[in-house]
Design a protein around this nucleic acid. Structure first.
Lengths: 250, 250
DNA sequence: TAATAAAAAGCGAACGCTCGCTCTTTTTTT
DNA sequence: AAAAAAAGAGCGAGCGTTCGCTTTTTATTA
């Protein structure tokens, strides 16, 4: 239960670039993980072929689905985009639903790891930073996956919908825990819950509206800092940069 | 061009209850408006029948669609829920798409009115209050409509998708204009844009996640005040309640 | 007011089409 | 040569939509 990982003290990321370099599921690694977790439902047995097809399938899904929605995307659309035949598709996925379920699965795994890394921090302020930046960076790196899950949760079987909803509740709960521990004075749970909600909203804002943020990549770091500043101010923490009231140049 | 409405000085709302009472599209009024705006596409000519059917159709849509998505909702589902036959449905709507287009239309009209009322205010601080509360109250009153448009924009024809996206940009632009005029000191557009984005996110948060906020109605007022406080703090306005740092009771 | 004719609204089986999915055959890899 | 992967025609089900018919409402007349 109590996960103590003192032996391998990981270096905690500070920038998006660093986070990206150390990200566990870069490139084929992600699809290797998906293959391992779904071996029983995948007819293709050689990892090499499975990975190649899964890559095609998810790339195509994230190309088509955001434009017309997952329900409206037919497997024939998918077949055309991937270059695989109907039979080819069904050798790597068990059903259309399975695609959405795997997305939910992947996002859940990644979120869990972000929370884990935050909990490894001793200083709650540092834990908050790691949580906010970790979630923000991870969701940027995996933008199509997070975006898909948000918009297409409705397409999932009931049980998976619940899981998706609980994922969000867990995230906001984790944020609230840290915020209220840092600022126990503001009217208890009432206010810290609101701040936590705001924090999560701002994180989601970025991956939900890619048409607003598809410009330069470096601004993810700036965005992350702005979010943290906003949290500090909202929670009245002294870490907030002072207001520059009344200062005018020129 | 310059809309001067000094003759009839409307009283500006202060609470959700008051906003609700004065809301222009209460009950049948909304469907009367829809009928007027879509007369040409509706086969039923008598308003009485059209309103009754439209009411049934949209109520049913907002019951089914949030659960499984608009695309997955068949007109047979809609027929069963409304009690209308297939032919009956098609006498009041021209196609399945038309339902989504009407929703977009209604939301656009309401948003425009909120902006109009905000612009009538002379004091920019009051204008900001009216804009935030107006948008929040209107989207609460019309929650299924706003929620539907956000999640099902993808189902709209391309041109209507653009309109829906511009609606959001207009809202955040209006917010930013007011915030930057109130707080010109914080690094110009860079920061005020971020605060405006946050404000809109928090407004949307509420109608996007009804499963988080379906409890008592009165908390909409509290939520609105929290949002405004957050904006004041984020923008370093003196209207923000001071931080109660280090104050502990018991 | 009751009877009747004209108009409008409502109905639902049927249509052409596309969907997710299967299964036998062919091709590629080992 | 054996095994694995890819192909794609074909299946029944369900889709959005239409249209000829019935029922209800409205207007007119007695």
């Amino acid at each position: 239960m109590s996960s103590v990982s003192l032996e391998i003290e990981q270096h905690t990321f500070t920038s998006y670039k660093e986070f990206e370099e150390n990200f566990e599921y870069k490139g084929e690694r992600l699809y290797s993980m998906i293959f391992e977790r779904n071996k029983d439902k995948i007819k293709v047995s050689k990892e090499k072929f499975a990975i190649r097809n899964l890559q095609k399938i998810f790339n195509a899904t994230f190309l088509i689905s955001p434009k017309i929605g997952f329900d409206a995307m037919s497997l024939r659309d998918l077949s055309a985009e991937t270059g695989l035949s109907m039979g080819g598709l069904y050798s790597s996925i068990s059903s259309k639903d399975a695609i959405a379920i795997i997305v939910k699965d992947v996002v859940a795994v990644i979120c869990e790891e972000v929370v884990d890394e935050s909990r490894e921090q001793d200083d709650p302020l540092e834990a908050l930073r790691v949580l906010v930046k970790g979630y923000l960076y991870a969701s940027t790196l995996m933008q199509p996956w997070f975006n898909f899950l948000y918009f297409e949760t409705k397409c999932l079987p009931q049980i998976n919908q619940e899981e998706s909803k609980n994922l969000e509740l867990a995230q906001v709960g984790e944020l609230e825990k840290l915020i209220s521990s840092l600022s126990p004075d503001l009217k208890s749970c009432h206010k810290s819950g609101f701040v936590a909600t705001m924090a999560l909203s701002m994180i989601q804002e970025r991956y939900l509206k890619p048409w607003k943020y598809h410009n330069p990549e470096k601004t993810v770091d700036e965005y992350a800092d702005s979010c943290l500043q906003l949290i500090y101010r909202a929670a009245c923490l002294e870490e907030a940069t002072p207001c520059e009231t009344g200062l005018k140049d020129s």
